[in-house]
């Protein structure tokens, strides 16, 4: 039977999990705030969670569509609302994850750790659901163009969330970690 892992390795793994969570938060803030939730941002096409602008051949300008027109284009109000709730809700849940993570590490509290895992799992599901739902409505326009930085950031955040969940699953809080609490706590 293998002995317990060295303390420094536990600390390193925990720190990398925290860093990953912060990276995910930064990516999501970049995509949803800085990029205004735009998945594609080209001179002739701008599609995002709060923008829906298509190229108008007649006027040779980018024409932005509001809601009655969007429903005619096949983007339902409720569907878009749910997609937005998914991605922005995912950001909120990810924002809440570091606190129980730190509490778990400081107090060797397995339940706080599980809560953090729960937050990140729900966040991952919401992000995938919201992004998937939105793409299902706008795919016919988005597929013709290159994915924008916002889309890449959200995709990376989704991938990192899955990676985080795997890392946290193989890093359960053990009773012997009680001795290796962070000094700062």
């Amino acid at each position: 039977m293998a002995g317990p892992r060295p303390r420094w390795r536990d600390q390193l793994l925990f720190m990398s999990i925290i860093v990953l969570v912060i990276v995910v938060i930064c990516l999501m803030f970049y995509a949803l705030l800085w990029e205004a939730g735009n998945l594609t941002d080209l001179p002739n096409l701008r599609i995002g969670f709060y923008n829906f602008c298509l190229w108008n051949e007649d006027t040779s300008t980018l024409q932005c569509h509001q809601f009655p027109e969007l429903e005619a284009l096949g983007v339902p109000r409720v569907g878009l609302g749910l997609a937005r709730l998914g991605v922005y809700g995912s950001l909120v849940l990810t924002l809440f994850a570091p606190q129980p993570l730190l509490l778990a590490q400081c107090n060797s509290d397995e339940r706080a750790w599980r809560l953090a895992v729960g937050f990140l799992a729900v966040s991952s599901v919401l992000l995938a659901g919201g992004l998937g739902l939105f793409l299902s409505y706008v795919w016919k326009w988005v597929r013709l163009s290159l994915p924008g930085p916002g889309f890449l950031a959200l995709g990376s955040a989704q991938a990192l969330l899955i990676l985080l969940l795997i890392a946290m699953a193989v890093f359960p809080l053990r009773a012997e970690r009680a001795e290796s609490k962070l000094e700062s706590c």
């Binding site: 949803l32 705030l33 205004a36 709060y50 922005y88 950001l91 909120v92 849940l93 809440f96």
Partner: peptide, 15 residues
């Protein structure tokens, strides 16, 4: 009106 940052704050506060 519809401000994205405030939407995030509102969602966080509501939760």
């Amino acid at each position: 009106g519809t401000d994205i940052l405030l939407l995030i704050v509102r969602l966080a506060v509501l939760m």
